[in-house]
Design a protein around this nucleic acid. Structure first.
Length: 506
RNA sequence: GUCCCCGUCGUCCAGUGGUUAGGACAUCGCCCUUUCACGGCGGUAACACGGGUUCGAAUCCCGUCGGGGACGCCA
């Protein structure tokens, strides 16, 4: 293990960091947050920032996601030196294109006795896990396959039985690693599971792929979210098994919902697409993310005086200033709440600082872009008699705060409670739906049938939530044009508001 | 439940043994203003608790409590 020392980094390798998003859906604010941190870290040390796509999960793979991630990161102003789109000397940068590499490395581990094949099915494991939970035991793999004889293994292999490869965690002892922000962290090996390294479909899990890639890509500092701390011992064990030098680990605090739980789409808009489409400015978003965790030193009294700063200026800074002053050692470890109220204030500051022409350009590029107007126009062309009526019909597509009164959203033969419950179901159905008119309609109808809601009741409720009115352009088309991220948010906000109102009445 | 991490106003951050515990957002009041917003001024509001260490603890140590994360053939 590395001896404890406060001397400058023993390895004089050039700094290389990476962001490794998984293309499973919309680009996430957490990705932007960790991306920003990695970007700054590299920029401050003259290092390289690598973008690697972790697409080893076939079941959750979303084809459109990768491009959306690129676009979203570029939108907030981050660029990378190496990645699937720009190439680089350590490619390929898509894990699905590196399967041969992982196969070779698994073979190495198998041969050196650091890993073993395991033939249980996912169902069998699930069963065991349930029993363990019921018996209040920690849910863990029991290590049965460790004891398979070579004959048994060969027989299973010959029979074509699917298998996974697991890490053989030592039964005794513990693993200690250094977190650059927290100091040493120790895990007893009896609390570390025999992690699956390669799935039965031949794809590696994150744990194997990230270690192999980080090493091969010469990553010096692993800057990732705190949720990874408990699997870091597995990674350390892997580095040791391969005989590789450890990178430094920096675990960043997790962004939180208002209730302090890990930020999630159920409780907070997390899609960068949502923020872009709702008219948040990219530099405001980046500034806000820089505020999370407190890595930016506040300006000193002298700076405030010499630069003539307002007191609130301490919270307002650009990417360039972050490169200059952001200090990783200052990061506070309490998980910061992603507070939309403050984000909105910050965004307002940025809007007010734009010149009239800049603001005009912002409008033309967002809410009044040609693309958006082109999409909205066909919804109303045959429904209006003067162009002046355009706003009357489409206001909800240009508004942020649409909230129908109960007289509008409550169907005649329904109670408020069952209606809100159904709206929550609609939200779930919409979340799961592909975003085109036919798919949305099918999902909603399926739900209506299951819950005994007529098509009319079903669609009118959603129409009321989306448009705030009983009259609107065609529902499905409106949803499509308004966009998935914003539509979901509108339903979510409707439900939250009604919940609050109900609580007030009590 | 087990393991790990964390703990200053409602929220985001300052504070690294001696401060009237500071700023920003939010909130409340006043001013500006035809309205709203912006802007200006002011107020309410926090060291989770209990033990130590020390002349002195928000700051150091221990415990309790609280919050969070992980415990997947997801990342």
């Amino acid at each position: 293990m590395t001896p404890e020392t406060s001397a400058p980094s023993p390895d004089s390798r050039p700094t290389r960091v990476r962001i490794a998003p998984s293309p499973t859906g919309d680009p996430h604010v957490g990705t932007a947050y960790i991306g920003l941190l990695n970007y700054l870290f590299a920029a401050q040390r003259g290092g390289e920032f690598v973008l690697r796509i972790e697409d080893t999960d076939r079941t959750r793979f979303v084809a459109s996601s990768e491009q959306m991630i690129f676009d979203a990161l570029k939108w907030i102003g981050l660029t990378w030196n190496e990645g699937p789109d720009v190439g680089g000397p350590y490619g390929p940068y898509r894990q699905s294109e590196r399967t041969e590499i992982y196969r070779e490395h698994v073979e190495l581990l198998l041969r050196s006795g650091h890993a073993y094949r395991s033939f249980e099915t996912a169902e069998e494991l699930e069963e065991v896990r349930k029993q363990q939970m019921a018996a209040k035991q920690p849910p863990r793999y029991n290590g049965a396959a460790r004891h398979l004889s070579q004959e048994e293994i060969d027989a299973n292999l010959a029979a074509g039985k699917p298998f996974v490869v697991r890490l053989k965690v030592p039964l005794e002892g513990s693993t200690t690693f250094r977190d650059e922000l927290r100091g040493e962290i120790t895990f007893d090996h009896n609390n570390v599971d025999d992690q699956v390294l390669m799935k039965s479909d031949g794809f590696p899990t994150y744990h194997l792929a990230n270690v192999v890639d980080d090493h091969l890509m010469r990553i010096t500092d692993v800057i990732r979210a705190e949720e990874w701390i408990s699997s870091t011992p597995k990674h350390v064990l892997l580095y040791n098994a391969f005989g590789w030098e450890l990178p430094k680990f920096w675990h960043m605090p997790l962004l939180r919902n208002v209730d302090k739980s890990k930020i999630s789409k159920r409780k907070n808009p997390v899609s960068l697409v949502y923020y872009r489409e709702s008219g948040y400015l990219p530099n405001a978003m980046l500034n806000f993310l820089g505020l999370m965790g407190g890595g930016m030193a506040q300006p000193t009294e002298q700076e405030i005086v010499s630069k003539g700063l307002n007191t609130k200026e301490g919270d307002i800074f650009s990417l360039a200033e972050m490169k200059e002053r952001f200090d990783f050692q200052r990061i506070s470890l309490g998980g910061p709440v992603f507070d939309l109220v403050k984000l909105k204030w910050l965004n307002g500051e940025y809007i007010r600082r734009q010149s009239p022409d800049e603001f005009f350009q912002t409008l033309r590029q967002t809410l009044f872009s040609d693309a958006y107007l082109r999409a909205v126009a066909p919804l109303v062309q045959e429904r209006i008699e003067t162009v002046g009526q355009f706003g009357d019909m489409t206001g909800f597509l240009f508004s942020d705060n649409v909230l129908p009164p109960e007289s509008v959203w409550l169907p005649k033969k329904r109670q408020p409670e069952e209606t809100l419950a159904f709206a929550a179901e609609q939200l779930t159905a919409l979340e799961a739906s592909t975003w085109d008119a036919a798919s949305i309609e099918a999902e909603l109808k399926k739900l209506g049938e299951a819950k005994q809601w007529s098509v009319k009741e079903n669609f009118m409720l959603l129409r009321a939530i989306l448009s705030g009115s009983l009259t609107s352009p065609p529902l499905m088309e409106s949803l499509v044009v308004f966009g998935k991220a914003r539509s979901l948010d509108r339903v979510r906000r409707f439900l939250e508001t009604q919940k609050k109102l109900a609580n007030q009445r009590k």
